[in-house]
């Protein structure tokens, strides 16, 4: 049994401590917004926040998050009202949408510490997150839009 805070609520999951957080979140806690893309920390589709830091949940075991606070895309806001989510809708960023939870979570980490990131800072921060539909330019624009409105 591993206990941690998931989107503000205390949870105790009955899984081996070595279970990747990704699968515990998706298959046990039932929050499927966090995606499996590579299972090797190479694509960023599984990005979540652990105590406010964006990390790859496929490379993090549940025992590593014991007593910590995990935030997934479902917990970023109650009603898609985070400035990034609003900008993502306004600029029609997603195409297939599969990588976008990870993109938004990664971007949220940036905006939390840098209120007005430059294009270069955005690219450096986001470079580990693959979008196969090629929405990169829209992601940059949406982060800039959210930064202005935040």
């Amino acid at each position: 049994m591993v206990s941690f805070k998931l989107n503000g609520r205390q949870v105790s999951l009955d899984v081996p401590g070595t279970t990747p957080l990704l699968w515990a979140i998706r298959d046990v806690a039932g929050l499927t917004g966090t995606k499996y893309g590579c299972g090797a920390g190479l694509c960023g589709a599984c990005t979540v926040h652990i105590d406010g830091v964006a990390l790859r949940s496929c490379q993090t075991t549940v025992s590593e998050v014991a007593n910590k606070a995990v935030t997934t895309i479902e917990g970023l806001s109650k009603d898609s009202s985070h400035p990034l989510q609003k900008a993502w809708v306004d600029l029609q960023v997603p195409q297939c949408g599969y990588c976008q939870s990870g993109q938004i979570m990664k971007a949220a980490e940036l905006l939390a510490k840098n209120k007005a990131p430059s294009r270069e800072e955005i690219v450096t921060h986001m470079d580990g997150n693959i979008c196969r539909c090629g929405t990169y330019h829209k992601i940059i624009a949406a982060i800039q839009t959210a930064a202005k409105g935040a």
Binding site: T32, S80, W88, G97, S101
Partner: peptide, 27 residues
């Protein structure tokens, strides 16, 4: 006209095949 699928793709609620879970399902 905005795409109808976009709002569910920014909050994790869009259902992809990989997200489906059935009672008694194995992997």
């Amino acid at each position: 006209v905005p795409r109808r699928d976009i709002p569910e793709k920014v909050n994790g609620s869009a259902q992809f095949g990989i997200d489906v879970k059935l009672p008694g399902m194995v992997y």
